[in-house]
Design a protein around this nucleic acid. Structure first.
Lengths: 239, 239
DNA sequence: CCCTCTAGGATTGTCGACAATTTGCGTCCC
DNA sequence: GGGACGCAAATTGTCGACAATCCTAGAGGG
C-alpha cells in the first residue's frame, strides 16, 4: 500500500504555515522594502480587515514582530514600525559583524567550503545581474542574500535566528539611506574576495575582509562612527 | 503646581507591564530553573485557568516564547518546552561566544572600563557567596548574571536582545547537566581574571580568556565537541 | 491475531463582542 | 485670552464560544 519510493516527491500539507506566520511574513516584507516606512502606526482593526482575518491571528503576528524588534509596542497606544536612528545603524552593524564573523569561522573550518563558496558565488552573480540592469533594490536584495547564505552555511540554528532580524534591519537602512555612494564594481569585488578567501580556507584574510566590509558600510551609512574604533555613536539611542 | 523636584522619586504607572509579559516572564523562569522540564507539553486551557486569565493573553505570551526559541510549536498539536540535544549545547556556546566576544570588545574599548569591572566584580562576589553556602543554583544564577552584565555593559540593544535567549538556554543546560565537575575556585578565578584583563584594557587577553572559558564549558557539557576545532557535534541536530 | 476503519474526546485555531485606557477637542472658569 | 477640566471617539486589552484539526481507543473484518 505504500507508495513506491521516489514518487510524489516533496508533497506537503496543504497549509503548512499558520495564518499568523503568513501575515508576519507579509508585514516583514512590507517593512523591509519600505512600503511601511519607519514610524508608521499599524492599526489592528484596519489591518485585520485588509488581511480578511480576525484580530486574533493578526495580533499574534504583530507580537511576533515586536519580539523580533521590528515593531515597538506602546501600551494602549498602538504598534509602530521602529525608526532607525544613527546609533541603531552602528548597533546593527556591530551585531552583524559579531554574527557573521562567527558564521565565517564555522564555514571556513567546516568541511564544505567549496559547496558554500559556490552558493555564495551564485548570489554575487545575482548582484552583477542586478547591477547591469541598474536595479538598486534587486542589488540590495542579492547583497543580503549573500550574507544570509553565509550565515545559513554556518549550520547554526541560533546564528540564523538572530541574524534574521538584523538582515531585515539592514535592508531598512539601505532603503532609508538609498544612496550608498558605493560603486557597484567595488561592492561586487568585496564579496568576490570574501568568497576566494573562504575557498582558500584562509580564515584570517576572510575575517579581515569581513571586518573591513562592515566598517565600510557603517562609515558610509553613519558617517563619523567606526566599528574598529569602537567609539559610541553621536546619538546615544541605546540602553 | 509642579511638584518640587526631587520628591516622589521614581513613580511609575500602576501597571507598567502587560499581562502577557508577566506570564511570559513567569514561564521563562519556570523553564530556566527546570520547573518545566524539556519536552513538557503546555496546555493552553490548563495554564489559562492556572494564571486566572483568558487564553488570549496567554497565547500571546506563548507566541513570544516560541519566537524566542524556548518553546516549539507543532500546529494543532500543542506547545512544548524545547529539549536540548548535544548539538544544541555546542550551538548555544558557539553563539554565546560570538555575542560575548563582541560585547567584550565594546566594553574594553568603551570609556567605562572601571565602572563595568566593578559591576562584574559584584556578581563574582555573589558567586563566591553562593559557593561558600554550597548553593549550586545560586552559583549558576550568579554566573549568568556576570555574563548578562557584561553584555549589558556593551550598550548594544541588539546584543542584549539576542543574548537573553542564549543565557536562558545556558541555564537550561546547567540545570539539565547539573554536575559541572568544575571546582568552584576555578570557576570564580576564571571570571576574576576576565575582570582583571578588562580593567587593564588588555583586549587580547580578555578575548583569549573568554574563548577558553567557553571552550571549557562546552567540553564539559558536551564532551567530544570543541569550539576552537569547529568540528560539528556528533548529533547533527541543526539545520 | 493483526490490521483497518470509525467514533469519541481533547486541543488548538479563529471569531465577534465587551471592557479598559488613552488621546484629542470642546467647554468653562479665571 | 490662557489654562484646566471633562467628555467623547478611537484604539487596544480581554473574554467566552464556536469551528477545525489531530490523537486515541475501540469495534469490526480479514
Amino acid at each position: 500500500m505504500a507508495l513506491p519510493p521516489g514518487m510524489l516527491p516533496e508533497i506537503e500539507p496543504v497549509s503548512r504555515e499558520s495564518t499568523a506566520a503568513v501575515i508576519a511574513r507579509q508585514l516583514r516584507d512590507a517593512i523591509m522594502t519600505g512600503a511601511l516606512p519607519p514610524g508608521t502606526q499599524l492599526g489592528e482593526t484596519e489591518l485585520a480587515s485588509r488581511f480578511q482575518v480576525s484580530r486574533g491571528p493578526l495580533r499574534e503576528a504583530m507580537q511576533h514582530l515586536v519580539s523580533e524588534g521590528l515593531l515597538r509596542s506602546e501600551r494602549h497606544r498602538g504598534l509602530f514600525v521602529i525608526d532607525l536612528e544613527p546609533g541603531d545603524v552602528y548597533d546593527i552593524y556591530a551585531a552583524r559583524s559579531a554574527i557573521e564573523r562567527a558564521a565565517m569561522i564555522r564555514a571556513v573550518r567546516g568541511g564544505e567550503r567549496e559547496r558554500v563558496a559556490d552558493v555564495l558565488a551564485q548570489t554575487v552573480a545575482e548582484m552583477a545581474t542586478a547591477a547591469s540592469e541598474d536595479d538598486p533594490s534587486a542589488l540590495s536584495t542579492a547583497d543580503l542574500r549573500f550574507h544570509e547564505a553565509l550565515i545559513n552555511a554556518s549550520g547554526s540554528k541560533r546564528l540564523v535566528r538572530m541574524a534574521r532580524t538584523l538582515l531585515i534591519e539592514t535592508r531598512m537602512c539601505l532603503t532609508a539611506l538609498q544612496s550608498t555612494y558605493q560603486r557597484v564594481e567595488e561592492r561586487v569585488e568585496e564579496h568576490t574576495k570574501l568568497i576566494q578567501a573562504l575557498r582558500d580556507g584562509d580564515e584570517e584574510t576572510a575575517l579581515a575582509l569581513l571586518d573591513s566590509h562592515m566598517e565600510d558600510a557603517v562609515q558610509r551609512l553613519a558617517p563619523g562612527t567606526s566599528l574598529i574604533e569602537g567609539h559610541a555613536p553621536p546619538v546615544p539611542g541605546n540602553a
